[in-house]
Design a protein around this nucleic acid. Structure first.
Lengths: 346, 346
DNA sequence: TGGATCAATGGTAACGTTCCCGATAACGAT
DNA sequence: ATCGTTATCGGGAACGTTACCATTGATCCA
């Protein structure tokens, strides 16, 4: 448990540090017996190479940085588990930073992580990030970055996302097929990739079933639902409409629970007055009142795949000619919050 | 954005590295003009000291390690937010490791964090940790450690816990006052501090109200509710009893949701057949069916205080003669899962 | 037997920073 | 003129590790 160094071993065995170093790395040019001597002594003294010294020397750290909006969120914490399990197996460790949906903190975290010499970055953009030059500069300098979930559109690197379009389409289609026609959508800021894609899926489903798209049925929460008043306002605006929606499709963990909470307080009956389907990974969806129909993302798998791609990038510095943009299937879990007779709509 | 070093500045300004270093640290023995020159150039070139080099030199890293069971858990992720906000303000950064309730991973994480030269440790024990010698050794060597939530009994260092006894007493008392007499308790493994304290509060409340304690009403989940079958078995055993409980007091986030899920599947009516109160910080308690009465811990504040104590320990290496053991008040939020007439019981 | 080859090991610089110890010059005091 | 003082700066070592370039014997072949 004492911090013993190569120097200590060298002194104890009357060898040079070079010899010890090479013996430990099992170099071919070291005498077998010397090697054995060193290895045994190192084992006995519980020698562990100093990662800091290694980092300083090689400018790598066997660690990957994760920047995401927040961890107190089922989707992200499941995703982190996915990241960690792969990283752990590959000998990397994971440093997590939260942007708390703040652009400034995202930039600060990025800089810190870079100065800390992480070997690569796993990033999901904050809801207030419109300028991504801090990542582009790093990319230009050769820093491996993989984006997940909330990905920048133009940037040229690996990306892992859920099939937001498909999931959204499926949710909307499900609402339509259970007889809903006035379907609202409460979602994140429009400059997030997830917002655009989910909105597109929603629109396409409406279109396919001959329901005209009504812009006033779409509400954006600029802080991604982090601010209570936002949800409140969004829901209230919908309730104040001439044609009150008969269904709401909510686009994230926080927005979903926020809206549910508002609807509860207003004693709106779900699904009778308004049906709800959420794009959410909350673990207790089936315990909610009513049990919540949800589009669930394969969060763990997203974490796995993003990490695999990142480590591949780190360990094969030759630039891949093509970057992957994987889209993982979501699954629609139907529960009572959208209960209704299946109606023939097409 | 380029990684510029002190050497680069020295070369550019025709100074020595020592001078530059001292100028940057605003040493009194450097000429004001020289200082200005260096500072301006450093600013212009966006110089950032290399934390790795600092770590190697000083054997400190301005970082603190956190070891806890899992982050995909409302209580812990709220607590992490508390840790981060303080650490961030004090110029430390936070490295989080999950034990996933495994003793081996806890030990591995500890070793890694130590070799990584964290300046201190914030620890909540895994549910399978009975031997804490890996922490005791570190403590003996002077490593600052603060325990929170699940703390070892004997160890001599700062500890931050919720008032588990009080919270538990309050919950039990509430059940009794709403007319329940056959109150079961499903909890974590008995060798965890939280288990012992919560059990004690539960017992004391029973005793104070003249209800005999029945050991068979207490069920332990050895994996802290992480394993579904555990919850299932615990609940089933209770349902199979001659005197089926009329209330269950569950002792953690995971155990609470796990039990609720089982009760739902078995179509047990809450609170009519069985009332439920959970020791839990889940965010959507009010959205559950029925809304869940909960003992809520001041998770964020626990994180704050633990971090403050740790940093104090780090920055004032003189051993404090006495270690603090703070216990923060919980709050009982009453909702429908324990609805019932208030009865006169004493 | 001289030179070449090879196995085995040592010495040292380098990564970026700080700190201890000097070094230099200017200046006033003796 | 000599000395001590002060202000300002430079040189080098150290943190732990590895890579490159020696160095040393020993062996071998012509």
């Amino acid at each position: 448990m004492e911090t013993i160094t190569i120097k200590d071993i060298a002194r104890a065995l009357n060898l040079s540090t070079s010899t010890v170093s090479r013996a430990l790395r099992n170099s071919y040019e070291i005498n077998t017996e010397t090697k054995k001597l060193v290895l045994e002594y190192a084992e006995k003294m519980n020698y562990r190479p100093n990662p800091i010294a290694l980092s300083l020397r090689d400018s790598k750290s066997k660690s990957i940085g994760v920047i995401l909006p927040e961890i107190a969120n089922n989707f992200f914490s499941q995703l982190i588990n996915g990241i960690e399990s792969i990283a752990y197996n590959m000998g990397y460790h994971v440093v997590i930073f939260q942007s708390h949906e703040s652009y400034e903190r995202e930039v600060a975290n990025t800089n810190y992580l870079v100065s800390r010499k992480v070997d690569g970055l796993l990033v999901s953009l904050s809801s207030l990030t419109t300028d991504i030059s801090h990542f582009e500069e790093l990319l230009d300098k050769g820093m491996p970055i993989v984006f997940f979930d909330r990905v920048p559109k133009k940037v040229d690197t690996h990306k892992i996302v859920a099939d937001n379009f498909g999931g959204s389409y499926q949710a909307t289609e499900h609402l339509i097929k259970t007889g809903k026609r006035k379907i609202a959508h409460i979602t994140s800021p429009i400059y997030l990739s997830i917002t655009v894609e989910r909105l597109a899926g929603y629109k396409k489903a409406l279109e396919d079933f001959g329901i005209p798209f009504d812009e006033s049925y779409v509400k954006y929460c600029h802080h991604g639902g982090m601010v209570v008043s936002e949800n409140e306002a969004a829901v209230q605006e919908l309730l104040d409409m001439d044609e009150v929606p008969d269904a709401i499709f909510t686009a994230s963990d926080r927005i979903t629970t926020g809206c549910l909470s508002v609807l509860h307080r207003k004693h709106i009956r779900i699904p009778d007055e308004i049906a709800i389907v959420g794009f959410t990974n909350i673990g207790v969806a089936e315990l909610l009142n009513p049990p919540l129909t949800a589009v669930v993302q394969p969060a763990m798998d997203m974490g796995n795949q993003a990490t695999e791609l990142l480590i591949k990038l780190i360990e094969h510095p030759k630039k891949p000619t093509i970057f992957e943009s994987r889209s993982l299937k979501t699954s629609l879990i139907i529960r009572e919050s959208t209960a209704g007779k299946i109606v023939n709509v097409s």
